[in-house]
């Protein structure tokens, strides 16, 4: 062999070989299950091209009124859910974090609980809430609140966990009691992190809210699934574009907000 790798034995490192082979094996083993058959793709290609062709039609101008209303509802749901979730997640995180919890016996069950809440995707929560209380934005908001609380509690907990204990000790040395120590020593240090996470939660809730309507939980997703069912291409195009526009606007806004805080 004329060629070698710059490693002690001149061969590729074992981890690289293992990772490469492992991935290829895993992909090979799951190819059939995931439906990766070239035939399906050959057939779907032209149909997909046709679909894209359909999407490039003059939009249905009359639809824009209800599209706007749907988008407003979507954003409103996200804002409301984020505000509620922040109020709930803050105390929860304080109870869960290593250095602020009154007792680890309380912290661990809460951590498991939020892990379970996180594990169920928001769309499934929405499905359950719709089945329980009926169609409309309320089950959607409830689903968003549940998942957002679970995520925010975890993120908050992690930021509280890593707060340096130096300033905290400074405050306890002047005789502050437990609660005061927690609030004044730890929280302010985590604030930039927390605000970033709040902005992120709003961001991700708007994304999530756009599709909740597919199961009837309010927002613009309802229009999406209708347009698909009825093959109203002149509505599908504007819908997808509006997702892009609204998420982009939000991205820019949250970027600016985050930069001001940190």
């Amino acid at each position: 062999m004329k060629y070698a790798w710059p490693t002690p034995n001149g061969r590729l490192p074992r981890t690289v070989i293992g990772l490469g082979f492992g991935t290829i094996l895993a992909l090979g083993a799951t190819a059939a299950t995931a439906g990766m058959e070239p035939g399906r793709f050959r057939d779907a290609g032209p149909r997909f091209a046709e679909l894209i062709g359909h999407l490039v039609t003059p939009p249905d101008w009359q639809f824009f009124g209800s599209l706007g209303a749907g988008l407003l509802e979507t954003v409103g749901m996200a804002i409301l859910a984020s505000c509620f979730a922040i109020v709930v997640a803050m105390p929860l995180a304080i109870l869960m974090a290593r250095n602020t919890t009154p007792s680890l016996l309380l912290a661990y069950p809460l951590r498991v609980l939020t892990a379970v809440m996180r594990a169920i995707p928001d769309l499934l929560w929405a499905l359950a809430f719709v089945a329980a209380v009926g169609l409309g934005p309320v089950p959607g908001i409830a689903a968003l609140i549940v998942t957002t609380v679970a995520y925010l509690a975890k993120f908050h907990q992690e930021s509280l966990d890593v707060v340096a204990l130096g300033p905290v000790e400074g405050i306890s040395s002047v005789g502050a009691n437990g609660l005061a120590r927690r609030w004044f020593g730890i929280l302010p240090q985590a604030v930039p992190d927390l605000v970033g996470q709040w902005v992120y939660s709003l961001d991700s809730n708007v994304r999530a809210a756009t599709i909740l309507g597919i199961v009837g939980a309010g927002g613009v997703g309802f229009d999406l699934s209708n347009a698909v069912k009825l093959q109203q291409y002149n509505r599908l195009g504007p819908l997808i574009l509006s997702f892009y526009v609204i998420v982009t606007i939000l991205d820019r806004l949250s970027d600016r907000l985050r930069r001001r805080v940190t």
Binding site: M1, Y3, A4, W5, P6, G10
Partner: peptide
């Protein structure tokens, strides 16, 4: 080959 981090032995 260089894109895969392989070098001629005499260069090494």
């Amino acid at each position: 080959l260089s894109l895969f981090y392989a070098f001629p032995r005499d260069e090494i």
